[in-house]
Design a binder for these strands. Structure first.
Lengths: 342, 342
DNA sequence: CTTGAATCTGTTATCGATAACATATAGGTC
DNA sequence: GACCTATATGTTATCGATAACAGATTCAAG
């Protein structure tokens, strides 16, 4: 209806309120010296014009864009959603917004995304995971803003880190299996190198098996990450066909574990009596499945919260302080799905 | 290490490449007239300086920011994630990015979010849902950019619409229940007015019950949306306590339905023989539950894809064309969880 | 009534890019 | 060679805000 005309500018508001644009600019900042009445007049003028600040112009001029960039692999993942919530809540009081992007578990996509985000000049960057393309690493290094890597423990960090060792977390599960008396143990995960955290889990899992003197051959890679319930179901079927005497299986995530559980039950198997199944991530579904799924809680929300605290410090310190590495301790949640019947 | 110095500008690149800034600017646009060798020289110069375009400045000057704003209620929801995927894929070829924000099912938060987003001058806005605060409506109307509401059929649309009637979708389930021979039918949903789509579903459900001459009293509101698996479990326990002879229950989403299913099974009830349970949204979990959950597929991804097509048209037409209303047809997926034993 | 500090407001230059216009060079045609 | 067109590059003004500085007003205290 109104056509696409130019939205009102600060100058328009200033004109209507009978002041200079600079005064309008000040009136929108919380603690700048503007007479209360002037401020009211300006607010009224702005509201009546439907004025909305142009933060691209503001950012250009002030060199403060007021947001931080965050990448996560997938938007539909309770773990990353929790981390993001922790981050958002932790940053709430600073007024910093979050520009969110998802990489689809793809490093090339991450590189594209990071470049796109850097074009908007974020004041800091949070990336999920410790593996990045060389160019992505260079871009982030050049950006001259604080960088935090979460959900991992990179060998060669870009800056600060809030994470845990996925390999060590997975080995917790092997310890648990062994303690419960299981010996013929398998692993189900994705089949590509895209999900480096998933691969780390597998690696840690297999290493732990060997440490316990157990066979590490029962590994099934199935489908592109993030591996779905359906893929978990197919995978366990294939795994049991190949190694029918398998006693226990860890899946790379709770979603695939649930798919596996469901497939076993539909095939008439009892869990855990006939086969034990465990997941990873402490999703809601693990708690509510029948039987409840043993899983590993990595403190997803805490990761985000810690990252927020760290960012606030890094931004205050003007980048001069040494980047930190904050370690999160994963915890095993032992549940019915891996309870050995004595 | 490098401190926080200013990142290189286009002028720096131009200087290094021995051309004017304008030529550098052109070299970054795909189809502008720059000699191939010059372009290469510029790219090399840019890469060696670690130059990244400043799109705030570019946007200010060109009045094209190259992104659209999208709000969804929650990031951790497979349905909205699917819509977003449809939107992203549909917009991919246009080069438009998506600035994502989530409202947490809260209209006040939506208002805040929309204002924040409009400050960055998106070229269009996609909002989930048809209910908005008055000020939010005003902001969007003033923004003079195309607006698309998805996932609803608002009485008084802000612009274009891609959605369906949540009430009509829920009534499909009543028809199904009745057809299966169920008579004492309940509903489980959230207890606040925040999730207007959930409330629409309830309203449509209850209206359909009355149309069939059935009692509409078995309604349980439980917890803030989005209602979780745990709340679904508690809710069905409470509902069965109050109305022990309930034959069938629809839950506002598949997640709560799964929680309810799980709680019933743990209480020793057989589904569907003792009680039928249905959900909403066609999540993965509905397919993989035991028994598989009857649900309603609303075509989440298609909503996003259609919204993308619509946006492209609206942006081309310069806003002059009449806004459209695209209707998506929800489909009932009848599964084992509501199969009446004859 | 003068003075100094605090508060309020205006002026000018600038952030980093691009639009619009101007100019220069190359290539083809008669 | 004259002329035209297409391609390639440079110059100038501008987008909408804010920083930095400067000037005006207010107010309290001596």
């Amino acid at each position: 209806m109104a056509g696409r005309r130019h939205p009102p500018t600060m100058a328009d508001v200033a004109h209507l309120a009978g002041v200079s644009p600079m005064t309008v600019s000040r009136a929108f900042k919380p603690k700048s010296s503007v007479k209360e009445e002037t401020r009211r007049k300006i607010r009224e003028a702005a509201e009546s014009l439907g004025y909305v600040l142009d933060s691209t112009a503001a950012g250009l001029s002030s060199r403060r864009t007021g947001f931080i960039a965050a990448t996560i692999p997938s938007i539909n993942n309770a773990n990353f959603a929790d981390s993001l919530r922790g981050l958002t809540e932790g940053l709430a009081e600073t007024g910093l917004q979050i520009l969110l992007g998802y990489t689809d578990y793809d490093l090339a996509e991450e590189e594209r995304l990071v470049e796109q985000m850097l074009r908007r000049r974020p004041e800091a960057v949070v990336v999920t995971g410790g593996a990045h393309s060389p160019r992505c690493r260079r871009l982030l290094a050049n950006a001259a803003v604080p960088v935090v890597e979460i959900w991992d423990q990179p060998r060669d960090p870009l800056g600060a880190v809030v994470g845990f060792s996925n390999a060590a977390a997975a080995s917790l599960m092997v310890d648990h299996f062994v303690e419960q008396g299981y010996r013929r143990i398998g692993f189900i995960g994705g089949d590509s190198s895209r999900d480096t955290r998933g691969l780390d889990r597998r690696r840690g899992f297999l290493e732990a098996l060997r440490t316990h003197g157990l066979s590490d051959e029962r590994v099934l890679a199935y489908g592109l990450p993030p591996i779905t319930m359906g893929q978990g179901a197919e995978a366990i079927t294939a795994l049991r066909e190949r190694w029918p005497d398998t006693e226990a299986v860890m899946c790379v995530s709770d979603l695939s574990a649930f798919g596996a559980l469901s497939a076993c039950q539909r095939a008439g198997l009892r869990v855990p009596q006939d086969i034990a199944i465990a997941g990873f991530g402490a999703y809601d579904i693990a708690e509510h499945a029948n039987p409840a799924l043993t899983t590993i809680d990595v403190g997803a929300k805490e990761i985000g919260a810690q990252a927020a605290d760290l960012l606030i410090k890094l931004l205050e310190d003007g980048d001069s302080s040494s980047p930190q590495m904050i370690q999160i301790e994963p915890r095993l949640l032992a549940r019915a799905s891996t309870q050995r019947r004595r």
